[in-house]
């Protein structure tokens, strides 16, 4: 990990397209401004980790589910559809 010290309003450039600026410093918190191409996602690390882990978990579970569990899974949503008196969200095509 590269470690740099920055003061308020100072910036860091990553590659040619990413810039991170220190906007404010509180006692235990720094506010950062980030400019980056919009195809890159910019996320708080803890959220990134939660979602990444969940994506991985889901991807590895899908293979089994497709064949062995699909009937059980489908019936879960059929039961819910039946019990929803107001089916305001029709199955999309």
């Amino acid at each position: 990990m590269l470690v740099l010290g920055r003061k308020i309003n100072e910036s860091i450039v990553i590659g040619d397209d990413i810039m991170i600026t220190v906007l404010a410093i509180d006692s235990d918190r720094v506010k950062l401004g980030i400019q980056a191409p919009r195809h890159l996602s910019i996320l708080r690390h803890e959220l990134y980790e939660i979602v990444k882990q969940e994506n991985l978990r889901a991807a590895t579970s899908a293979a089994d589910a497709e064949q062995k569990l699909l009937p059980s899974l489908r019936s879960v949503f059929e039961r819910q559809a039946d019990s929803q008196a107001d089916d305001s969200s029709p199955p999309s095509s």
């Binding site: 991807a59 899908a62 293979a63 949503f77 969200s89 999309s92």
Partner: peptide
């Protein structure tokens, strides 16, 4: 790589 997905309003 595949995922099972559903509209969350269900």
């Amino acid at each position: 790589v595949s995922f099972i997905v559903v509209d969350p309003r269900h």
